[in-house]
């Protein structure tokens, strides 16, 4: 490791000052579950480390009007133990429960999953499906960014050296909406996902799909919206008929994106089953809730 100096951040303003002072030489650490590996194998070589894991404002889950705001240093365990995510947001909780192991969930943070931009980040597809936005701050000011725009080819939107990811926020889904999630890993715990899929589906009084957002993880370079399947399903009646339509449009997206990769045939098959599982989750919620 190459560290000369380490700081325990006591407040957001102190952290922003430090980032402004050290810029590229500094790295933020919260849970440490990704960054310590990077420090040890020499993939990252900062001179300064700034710990944000003890700043209360960054590690809380708040409800403001119709929004949930999650501080960037909130751990997976905090999310899993919060009953806000028990009903129609269960897909998010399910994704967070499948991250790593108890030890990793006790330390790993939602902000770290985003800032490190892993293609296999479990928590990201549900947040993209929710239309989540990032709140980013620096001494230069604040900016808001759609999470789905954070991940792109150009990397223009990524955090700059003097910026701190403050929180992630999204609108609380309405009673007629539900978030589903499904993951394919090679074992139950400590499994890096091979493919993940999440969808937010809202139905109207006639049980037609009124609004839909689908997002995937590990199918491509970063987590992303699956617009082709969204377009195919909008307005359709919510029943098992949609499974066929979803399968063919998801596979058509795979055909465009993954051809030539060794995992292509495997993932092309896997997305179909994952969508079926997400559908079952959604269905059981709609069956339980009287709209």
């Amino acid at each position: 490791m190459t560290l000369d100096q380490v700081f325990k951040g006591n407040s957001i303003s102190e952290v922003l000052e430090l980032l402004n002072q050290y810029k590229e030489d500094a790295k933020i650490i919260a849970g440490g579950t990704d960054i310590i590996i990077g420090l040890r194998n020499g993939k990252i070589t900062p001179k300064v480390l700034i710990d944000i894991s003890k700043i209360d404002e960054l590690r809380q889950i708040q409800v403001e009007e119709n929004k949930i705001i999650i501080g960037s240093a909130t751990t997976y365990t905090q999310i899993v133990e919060n009953e806000l995510f028990d009903t129609n947001l269960y897909g998010f909780k399910k994704a967070c429960r499948l991250v790593g192991s108890p030890q990793i969930r006790n330390k790993g943070t939602i902000g770290g999953n985003i800032a490190n931009a892993s293609p296999a980040a479990d928590s990201i597809p549900p947040l993209i499906a929710l239309g989540a936005e990032l709140n980013i701050s620096s001494l230069r000011g604040n900016r808001k960014l759609l999470l789905e725009d954070y991940f792109n080819e150009k990397e223009d939107n990524r955090l700059r050296a003097d910026e701190l990811l403050m929180s992630i926020e999204f609108e609380i889904p309405k009673k007629n909406q539900v978030l589903g999630f499904s993951k394919l890993g090679l074992r139950k715990a400590l499994a890096i996902s091979r493919v993940t899929l999440s969808s937010l589906i809202g139905i109207d009084d006639d049980v037609n799909i009124e609004n839909i957002r689908v997002a995937s993880g590990s199918i491509g370079k970063y987590p992303m919206r699956e617009r082709e399947v969204e377009e195919a399903l909008i307005g359709k009646r919510f029943n098992s008929e949609i499974l066929k339509i979803a399968a063919s449009s998801l596979q058509s997206s795979m055909d465009k994106r993954l051809v030539g990769r060794s995992t292509y045939p495997y993932k092309r098959r896997a997305v179909v089953t994952l969508f079926e599982e997400v559908y079952k989750d959604n269905l059981s919620y709609f069956n339980e809730v009287t709209l």
């Binding site: 380490v6 325990k8 650490i29 849970g31 440490g32 579950t33 310590i36 480390l49 710990d51 894991s53 365990t77 192991s101 108890p102 030890q103 990793i104 006790n106 330390k107």
Partner: peptide
Amino acid sequence: CGACTVIMDGESVNSCMVMAFQ
């Protein structure tokens, strides 16, 4: 692997994934 697990402020953590200053 979890061989380095300790309890920190009531929660299990991997002590290889925590910096000493933290």
